[in-house]
Design a protein around this nucleic acid. Sequence first.
DNA 1: AAAAACAGAACGAACGTTCGGTTTTTGAAT
DNA 2: ATTCAAAAACCGAACGTTCGTTCTGTTTTT
Lengths: 193, 193
Amino acid sequence: MTRQTSDTEKKLAILDATLRLIRNNGFHNAPMSQVAKEAGVGTGTIYHHFVSKESIIAALYAQQKELMGRALMRGDKPGDNYRERFFRFWMNLYKHFVNHPDGFLFLEQYSNSPYITGSTRQDNEHFYAPVVAFITQGVKNGILRNMDPELLVALIYGNITTCVKLHLSGQIKMNPARLKQAAQATWDGVKID
Amino acid sequence: MTRQTSDTEKKLAILDATLRLIRNNGFHNAPMSQVAKEAGVGTGTIYHHFVSKESIIAALYAQQKELMGRALMRGDKPGDNYRERFFRFWMNLYKHFVNHPDGFLFLEQYSNSPYITGSTRQDNEHFYAPVVAFITQGVKNGILRNMDPELLVALIYGNITTCVKLHLSGQIKMNPARLKQAAQATWDGVKID
DNA sequence: AAAAACAGAACGAACGTTCGGTTTTTGAAT
DNA sequence: ATTCAAAAACCGAACGTTCGTTCTGTTTTT
């Protein structure tokens, strides 16, 4: 499943075009004919690389989850101060999403839609494992509020995506000062006083 | 636009059926034919009450935003302690969403989709006015962190919807204890120490 | 009797997918 | 190195289906 098969140039072009179209037009306005045109391939070619449109969506989901997981962990050193690691994760994720708006908006749309099957979600849940471990460790060491780690993760992740959405929609210009404030608000919400 | 025309029984049935279908199947799998069937009307009848499918969606958006706004303010007394008012708002919104999952999931899907036009969003923005005023007041009085009120509102709203989603998806059973913890985490994030 | 509400069949457009034929790549034999 | 046939990749027209909407006629209300 995970990329032992070589991703050809055309296959990546198809994924890329679908991602861009879905971002701009939504699922229902990303017809295969236009995917083909944007990717520079024939419509028939798409079905040599993917069994169906749904499978393209599923592949995109896995792709974006993996990119997200990698960006999240960038520069992390397990020996560092817990609070510093927290802020680094926060900023890693924020910057990744802001730098990859197509992927971000796709994930947001997809996660909230009935498109996603329980199995698809579960197949890609392993990307969360290191994060849940990090948070669980924080709770055990008395650094974080004694709450269900999954709830903590969700709250933190929600704060980050909130900031990303505000920035991408242009509602609020997320300068470094505001970013720091937002991350601090997240930290103050989950840390033990 | 807003409801000076009497909402007939059938019109409400159409709105209700569309809401239910969209929740279960998503936008793209809520065909008018099935809306008609679920609402117990002929397909032609729908077009006596709505000019298009898109207008049904817009009407649903306005309807749900209004219900949300009303539920939010329930039981509020402007003279009460600020912190108490904050927690009341938090719980009001949480309970409303949990009690109206169709409306909640519709709003989540719709807000993240390119369906929504800038004008539709703006038409219904007035529901936020009292909340923004409440938050702005908290900042001015030195109760809340000195941040952009819109950013604060978004962070708070995001925390609430995060909890609702966890509950509705069955990932976490949101008992009163956990709810209190989550609301407290939100408060600790935005209040001044 | 005029108007409004209603129903369901019918229509044209658009969609995901398939099909038949063409081009490109591959690799074993020369 | 060259050949060449089999396999893989590729294309865009065509197909069947489904959708939103409209049309025609009927029932209900005023």
